[in-house]
Each structure stands twice: as C-alpha cells, then as structure tokens.
Amino acid sequence: MKEKTLTIVNQIEQLEEMAKTLEALSDEWNIPMDIMLSLNLVLEELVTNIIFYGYKDKDEHKIIIRFSFDDKIIQIQIEDDAIEFNPLLASEPDIDESIENRKIGGLGIHFVRKLTNSIAYERTNNKNILTLTKNIA
C-alpha cells in the first residue's frame, strides 16, 4: 500500500499545492494523468467548499488530505475542523434546464458524486472526515 499525506491551510492559493501533489503522485504511482485530473477536480470542489463556507472565524485551519493506493483503488480522505457538512445530503442540481433557467451553482458536489466510486462521511470529535475511492481500471 502506497501512502501520502498532504496538509494544507484554509487559503484558496493552496489549490496549486494540491494540483502539484496530484501531478507528482501520477508519476510516482503510475496513475494516468486523466484520472488524477478528475481527482483534482473532486478535491478542488470539496476543499473550496470547506474554505469558503466552513469556518465561522478568520483563523488559520488545517485541512489534511490522505492518499493511499493499492494498485487498483485510490482512496482519498479529507479531514477538516470546519462546521459539520455532509456532502451526501446536498441536493442534486437540475442539469436538464434551458440556458435561461440553468442555475450557476450546485455543480461541485454533483462532480464529486459522478467522478468517484464511493463516498463515506463521518463526523467525529468535531471533525468532518470524508473518504472517497476511485477504481483504477
């Protein structure tokens, strides 16, 4: 089992650090770049939600992202101390609306659901722990 942990803080500029880590893991673990770009998108949507909507104060908070890979399944776990948020309970956007009526939000969690194979959420010790898996064909 290969493992890697990335700790970032709640600043949007940290997305670049995340992208670099995924790019490096693509090389080190020999995972196709297309899959890593999908996972980059999934992580960006989740981490952006945490940074923008998760904190009531203006303090610095850590967001811990743990990656593991067993040659078939990549698992990603995100741990944060933001307010309780279970993405599994978020409502689905209407993706069949006309141009005029199409809403500009709500797509992020939809991408997370569609681009992963499993999602599990738990709230423990005032932390959100979200565990995602992606099968590598």
Binding site: L37, E44, E45, I99, E100, I104, G105, L107, F111
Partner: peptide, 20 residues
C-alpha cells in the same frame, strides 16, 4: 486547456446567457 473546475464552467454559463 488541461483543466477546468466548476468555477470556470460558471463563467462560461454566465457568458452564454449574456451573449444569448
């Protein structure tokens, strides 16, 4: 372009609505 997240999609949707 190698990567676009929902933020980029929102900009394109806004532009499509404006131009339409």
């Amino acid at each position: 372009l190698v990567y676009m997240s929902s933020s980029g999609l929102r900009v394109l949707l806004m532009a499509l609505k404006k131009i339409t």
